[in-house]
Nucleic acid binder design. Structure first.
Lengths: 240, 240
DNA sequence: CGTGGAGTTGACAAAGATCAATACTAGTGG
DNA sequence: CCACTAGTATTGATCTTTGTCAACTCCACG
């Protein structure tokens, strides 16, 4: 191993206690018996740069705790364009969302450098989740969903134009279903702009433009959507 | 059904069981004894449009479950500009992040319409959190932190230009501290662009511009920051 | 040597922000 | 009923930022 500053640490399994003592890692406040428990349950490994740790859609098999190196968490946006959601560094967790939320991964994780990770198999954590009080469990689930949704919004923000984001928003307002939908915009133009990350004038023009294209009808704070599928098309400029 | 579907419901306390039976709300999958427990513990109230439910920085006193109406969750960005993080509608939870993460609220919540909410005081939920296995608890805490951070990124995306976002990112890379910092960019320009939500060319030019202003020195994949406080200024165009 | 990929630069076009002026709306007080 | 006002919505003109496209450099590697 050569010039890589991140790798001149001995390649031996780090104990959770030692990480925690340095104030590193997610388990700092944990009592020492939990930490030794972790040490018993975990395994340790290294991955080369480029290695995929997990992919969106796959079932979570455990939680990684990054010890050295850098991992990128990505999602694929509309045009197939990669969007990096987060860069995970030493001390960061990977895959805990899927395990806590009891659902498949919603993003990919790929090592950007050679990495060292500790690995906690799901069968250490899942029991904790499933034996938690149902109320707590549902709160956590909800939290995971929301996090996923915020990340989705981040991708939108990066990859869609204001008008497309507006169209997406209107569609969400209409809810699922078919036929003409009429909804009240519960926000002022200013607020709508704040929500969509644009200037109010931009939003007004986008609304006007959608109306001119007959994708919506405007009536003050009310919006009519005659054909949701057409509006859906306006959601993605890169569409075929 | 006329235009206001949301308000022709009687203003009486809805039971959690009835919400769950409709497939509404976060507590759908819960066993019925949990639901009746919730009903006993919760209170119910209405707030007028404009009412503040809680504010960033304040301690969480409980969790709201929105029954009718719309609430906006906002954060204040750099220039004092309001950014709407999320619009909460019927069935959404408010304030659970602070309770689960055992930390103060990191955003404001304001009713955009008259709203009806159920309220679960913290002393119903906090014990669940604090008596959870420490490992679970720390995972949840980590999750809450990350969510908060993603939302922060959303605000950045809306309110900072590419060069400012880049400056923020470089500062985070350097970590805290003083004096000249030299860091390796662990990403390709393309990846950096994906992360920051911009085109690679934009990022390259922003790097070049920061270098011309002597705020950074460029050397391939290495970046030197002679004076972090100056770079911090470049983070916010609206600064005095 | 080439060859390919990343990085860089310039020219141009598009999207969006900003500024200013004007309309529209609802309330207020005569 | 009519101004008058303040706040919101809309429109147009203009400038800035950013994206796109194309050329070209640089370098690692076979």
């Amino acid at each position: 191993m050569n010039s890589k500053a991140t790798l001149n640490r001995p390649k031996q399994v780090p104990s959770c206690a030692s990480c925690a003592k340095q104030g590193r890692g997610p388990f700092c406040g944990l009592p020492s018996d939990s930490l030794t428990g972790l040490d018993r349950a975990k395994s340790f490994g290294t991955y080369p740069r480029g290695q995929i740790l997990f992919q969106a859609g796959s079932k979570a098999t455990g939680v990684h705790c990054l010890n050295a190196g850098l991992v990128k968490l990505t999602r694929v946006g509309l045009g197939g364009k990669e969007q990096i959601l987060r860069l995970a560094g030493p001390g960061d967790l990977l895959g805990h969302r899927a395990v806590l939320g009891e659902r498949p991964h919603d993003h990919d994780a790929e090592a950007m450098t050679d990495v060292e990770v500790c690995y906690l198999p799901a069968d250490v954590i899942s029991p904790l989740v499933s034996s938690a009080p149902p109320l707590l469990r549902s709160l956590v689930k909800k939290l995971v969903e929301e996090t996923s949704e915020v990340e989705g919004r981040l991708v939108e923000r990066a990859q869609q134009r204001a008008e497309e984001r507006l169209a997406s928003f209107l569609l969400r307002l209409c809810g699922p279903g078919d036929g003409t939908a009429r909804v009240e915009l519960p926000l002022s133009r200013q607020e709508l702009a704040d929500y969509l990350g644009a200037a109010p004038e931009t939003i007004i023009r986008a609304l006007a433009h959608l109306a001119k294209r007959k994708l919506i009808r405007l009536d003050g704070r009310f919006v009519e959507v005659p054909d949701r599928s057409k509006l859906t098309d306006a959601t993605d400029s890169s569409a075929a």
